[in-house]
Design a protein around this nucleic acid. Structure first.
Lengths: 185, 185
DNA sequence: TTTAACATGTAATACGTTACATGATTAC
DNA sequence: GTAATCATGTAACGTATTACATGTTAAA
């Protein structure tokens, strides 16, 4: 049983949105799926090709007056069926996500506490930036797209980023306190 | 500028603990670093070899009466210096962690809401199991190892797992409510 | 005797990124 | 003219997993 990657389904799913070209998919992923998925052109184009070969998508080349020609992909009936099957398939085990900060802290026993606190501050800043970005997107969705039926799912996925990032930010502060307390002892 | 992997430093760091063999490192990682790092034998043994070649570690073969012979590694002065440098190096950018559930939810607009709720329940159960495991380890550390100086860092890394998992569990419930609300409309 | 735990290692494969390569069109 | 955006693609490389391969010792 191979641990089949979901990347293929990310592309297939994007074919059900307004994304029809490899280029626009990349933009969509970098923009809206950014906090839970990423993908490079080095994967997108070969996967699109293979989706056509498998019968899950079709292509046609569209000439444009004002832009370079593009390949427009659309999902086939078979592709939609395949997507449905994947959506209904049970989730795989949650994989451990590597965390550089935690790895460093784990080996920081003989290290100066000041350095650990500095690392925690670095992380907190990065997390705070991320949090603000998500908040900005959420505001945009709730004010501009409140009528869209789809927006519930957008909000849900964004909220995941927000709540877990918030928890991580608070943890940074907590951990700094713990380290300062220990220093005094 | 290559995006140098931290895996080498995970091994180097383990050499500062009671772990001296590839086998015991694997156990340690699967046990105690489990929520923020993982590694396979296919990486451990080649990396240990390369650490020796780089002068960061040394080996000796130890025969045992009751067990198969093992290779015991120790960190060298140079290795410790290298580890220090890494500990003090600024954190890389936080990478986006792929999340199968969020990917599925993002493409669930035309899907039956019941299926989305089912996926959220699956995730919640997995998260709850994980949370309980972390709690068990934390109890063990706080009751049995409270005297150890090192325990602060263990607690901190564990707490990260606890607070982010807790946040994710709550998010699952929230999201289920949101989907149910929308269904009624 | 056979299973589990201890112990080490390599080869094939999968997955993903980055660099490379090309070229059109638009806006400054 | 030149930078930015649009647009597609491949080759080389890095990273990590899995399967394969081997063997010891202890406990049931």
């Amino acid at each position: 049983m191979s641990k089949e990657s979901n990347t293929k389904y990310a592309i297939l799913g994007l074919l059900t949105t307004e994304c029809t070209t490899g280029y626009s998919m990349k933009q969509m992923i970098d923009g809206s799926l950014n906090h839970f998925w990423k993908i490079s052109y080095g994967q997108i184009y070969p996967i699109l090709k293979s989706l056509v070969e498998e019968g899950y998508a079709s292509v046609r080349i569209t000439e444009q007056d004002d832009r370079p020609a593009k390949k427009e992909y659309s999902i086939t009936a078979e592709g939609e069926k395949e997507l449905q099957l994947w959506l209904q398939k049970p989730l795989q085990e949650i994989q451990t996500e590597k965390n550089e900060l935690l790895l460093k802290l784990f080996f920081s026993r003989h290290q100066d506490v000041a350095n650990s606190i500095d690392l925690l501050d670095q992380q907190k800043n990065k997390l705070q930036d991320r949090y603000n970005t998500y908040m900005g997107i959420k505001d945009m969705i709730t004010t501009e797209l409140n009528d869209e039926l789809d927006s519930v799912y957008w909000i849900i996925t964004l909220d995941y980023g927000l709540v877990t990032t918030r928890a991580a930010i608070d943890w940074c502060e907590d951990s700094k306190s713990k380290l300062r307390d220990q220093k005094e002892e």
